[in-house]
Nucleic acid binder design. Structure first.
Lengths: 187, 187
DNA sequence: ACCTGAACACCGTTCAAGT
DNA sequence: ACCTGAACACCGTTCAAGT
C-alpha cells in the first residue's frame, strides 16, 4: 500500500499477488478492516528509538519531531488509513520523547502530557501535509519538494495564488511549539 | 455524509434519496470524486468570520482556534474527506486570523505565515481527533465527551491503560502554540 | 488446517436511447 | 436539457465443499 496507494488494495488483487483466491485471505484475517488494522500496527512496531544525536535537549526535541515526521512519511498508507486506525508513537519512542521533556525541565507527569501534545502536533501536520499532496488546489512546484502553488478554493482561476512551503511551515510550527514549552518553564 | 458517514454515500444511494437513477447524477457531476470535492468546498464557504468576542488579542486568538475546531467538528465528513480534498480556512476567516496576529505584534507578512501555522495545527488536531474517535484502541468513557480509555497498540489486553482527554490536549496545544508566538515577539 | 467455486449484494461508470 | 435501461468491470463477504 505504501508503494501503490491505499486504494490499490483489494482482497482480490492482494490474493492474486499471493497466488491464492480472495477467500483464502479470510482464513488469516476476519475482514479487510482487520487486515488494514494489522498493517498500521505493524508499521507502528517498526518505530524503535529515534536517532537524535547530541546537543541541547531543545535541539534533540527538534530532531525528535523531525524524525517522527520522517517515519510517518515513509508510511503514507498508514497515514491514509490513520483516519480509521489511529497510528501511535507508543512504547520506546514515547518514553524517549517524554524523557527529553523531563531533561528540558518538566516534572515526569507533565512531561508525558507535553510529549503527547507534541506528538499530536506532528501527526496532525503529517495528516494535513498528505492531504495537500493530493489536493486539486495544490500544484507541486517542479524541482522543489514540499513546495506548492496554491489556488484559493472558490476563487476564480486568475485570483492571486500563493506559495506553500511545507518544510518551512513544519519548522515554524515546531519552533513555535518548543518556544511555547520553554516559555512555560520560564514562568 | 455529516449525518450518516462518508462511507454511506454511494451514487446509487444518493440517487435513490433524490428519486432519480444513479446515472442522472453524472449529468451534474463528472464523477463521485468531483461531487465530494464540491461537498468539501461548500462546507468551506459556510465558514464566515468567527465570533471572537472582546478581550486581549491573545484571548481572541484562543477563541479563534476553538471556533475553527468547532467548525470542522460540525462537518466530520469534510474532515474524513480532507485527506483527498484539502479543507481550508480561506477568505474572510484567513484575513480575520492574520489581522489578529498583527494586533498581537507581528508584521503583516509574518502574521500571514504564523496564521498559516496555527491553522495547520488546529486542522491537524481535528484530523487526529477524528481518527481517535473511530480507533479500536480508544474506548469513549461514558458520560465524558472527549475522554477516552486508551489501550496501547501491540500490548496485551491487561497492559496499563491511560486516559485521553481531547479537550485538555487541545487546550495544552493551543496554549503552548500561543506562548511560543508571544515568546517570538518578546525576543 | 488451509483453500477454492460459486454466489450475493453491492460498487463507479459508460453509453446508447428516450423525452 | 435532463434522465433511464442495460451493461461492464469491479468490490467485500459468506458458505458449502474440497484436500
Amino acid at each position: 500500500m505504501d508503494e501503490r496507494g491505499v486504494e490499490w488494495l483489494s482482497m482480490r488483487k492482494l490474493a492474486a499477488e499471493l497466488g491464492v483466491s480472495a477467500q483464502a485471505l479470510y482464513w488469516y484475517f476476519p475482514s479487510k478492516d482487520a487486515l488494514c488494522r494489522a498493517v498500521v500496527s505493524a508499521a507502528g512496531e517498526e518505530l524503535g528509538t529515534l536517532p537524535l544525536g547530541r546537543g541541547t535537549p531543545l535541539r534533540r526535541l527538534d530532531r525528535y519531531a523531525r524524525e517522527l515526521r520522517a517515519h510517518w512519511r515513509t508510511h503514507p498508507s498508514v497515514i491514509a488509513l490513520g483516519r480509521r486506525y489511529q497510528p501511535t508513537a507508543a512504547g520506546a519512542v514515547a518514553e524517549q520523547g517524554a524523557a527529553l521533556l523531563q531533561e528540558l525541565g518538566f516534572a515526569p507527569d507533565v512531561a508525558v502530557e507535553r510529549h503527547h501534545a507534541l506528538v499530536w502536533i506532528v501527526l496532525g501536520f503529517v495528516y494535513v501535509e498528505q492531504g495537500v499532496s493530493q489536493s486539486a488546489h495544490h500544484q507541486p512546484i517542479a524541482g522543489n519538494a514540499g513546495r506548492y502553488d496554491v489556488q484559493v478554493a472558490g476563487s476564480s482561476p486568475d485570483a492571486p495564488r500563493y506559495q506553500l512551503d511545507t518544510e518551512r511551515l513544519f519548522s515554524d510550527i515546531i519552533r513555535t511549539a518548543l518556544a511555547g514549552l520553554v516559555a512555560e518553564l520560564g514562568g
